[in-house]
């Protein structure tokens, strides 16, 4: 187990380095950052002064290591637009996104897994059909439309929940529903297909042949094997939910990371964009690594290999 984990961590570290280099390079993809900061009315001397002030005149490799070095100690640079540390801006926004993401993820799992299992136990039964309708509609309805409609119906007509913002906990109800409705279909379908596949195997027949009650056959023998693909998918889904759906945060006027990224792009506030991309990429690396380790805990065959 320990060699497996250390191998996975080493791979994760390599990915982190690549990701940091890529997000650093973003800064220079859109042209000379000094000219961008100087603005459309800036003179050549201003750009030159900015270049020296920000250190853009140094070799790019030096700049990269400088940037990584300060990122490691928690300094992601200064926002060009607000002229305050990027970490401060992100720190103010990350709470909303984390709350929204984790609650939506939890709700999605609680709905998707039991529904997927129930659908798999009787394929083409009525639960399976209802689950299919939920899955298809969840994948077909765009979340911005669902978000707007739910605001109109539950916020405006009935007035049950606030129309926008996260001033109170009620403000999270609609965004959580819309966001988890987006996440449920894939999670449910993979639970269902995994369960159907596992339920057809000989070891399930063997477990039944031992006289184990169906409840134990499912929980002990089937589920553990069926969740393996689900774990990997759930890690990616959680990454998507946490990377702050730009659409959902904009529709519900929640000041989260997604909205910040969108605004910063419009403002050409590149250090903020860069930092958000770096954080989200590292988050994905962390989640997929955790998923791999969890899968190895569940399935002993994975521990020896790779």
């Amino acid at each position: 187990m320990i060699p497996f984990i250390s191998k996975r961590l080493f791979v994760a570290l390599c990915v982190c380095l690549t990701v940091s280099a890529l997000s650093f390079a973003l800064m220079f993809l859109s042209g000379d950052p000094a000219i961008a900061i100087a603005g459309s009315g800036g003179r050549a001397e201003d750009a030159e002064a900015i270049r020296i002030a920000y250190g853009f005149d140094r070799p790019i490799v030096v700049q990269y290591f400088d940037w990584v070095g300060s990122a490691l100690v928690g300094n992601l640079g200064q926002s060009i637009y607000f002229n305050v540390p990027v970490t401060e801006i992100i720190g103010n926004r990350v709470g909303v996104t984390l709350t929204l993401g984790f609650i939506s993820f939890f709700v999605a799992l609680v709905v998707a897994i039991p529904l997927g299992i129930a659908a798999a136990l009787r394929p083409n039964g009525w639960i399976d059909r209802i689950a299919l309708v939920i899955a298809v509609s969840g994948q077909a309805i765009p979340s911005f439309w669902l978000g707007l409609m739910s605001i109109v119906v539950f916020g405006v007509w009935y007035g049950w929940v606030p129309i926008s913002g996260a001033a109170s906990w009620q403000g999270y109800i609609l965004p959580v529903i819309v966001l988890s409705y987006y996440a449920v279909p894939e999670l449910m379908r993979i639970t269902r297909s995994g369960m159907i596949e596992v339920l057809g195997t000989d070891y399930i027949r063997a477990a039944k042949a031992k006289g184990l009650p169906m409840r134990l056959v499912i929980s002990r023998h089937a589920l553990r094997n069926a969740v393996l693909p689900l774990v990997s998918l759930a890690a990616v889904q959680l990454g998507q939910l946490l990377s702050g759906s730009i659409v959902i945060e904009s529709v519900f006027a929640l000041n989260g990371l997604g909205r910040l990224a969108w605004e910063s792009l419009l403002r050409s506030d590149l250090p903020v964009v860069q930092a958000i991309i770096l954080i989200l990429a590292l988050l994905y690396v962390l989640l997929t690594t955790l998923a791999d380790i969890l899968n190895a805990v569940l399935d002993p065959r994975l521990r020896g290999a790779s």
Binding site: G211, N225, P300
Partner: peptide, 20 residues
Amino acid sequence: RGRDVAMIFQDPTSALNPTL
């Protein structure tokens, strides 16, 4: 099942649960 009658299967690689 298991007490009066028990069963063994064709493919022993798939008849044992890989995760237990």
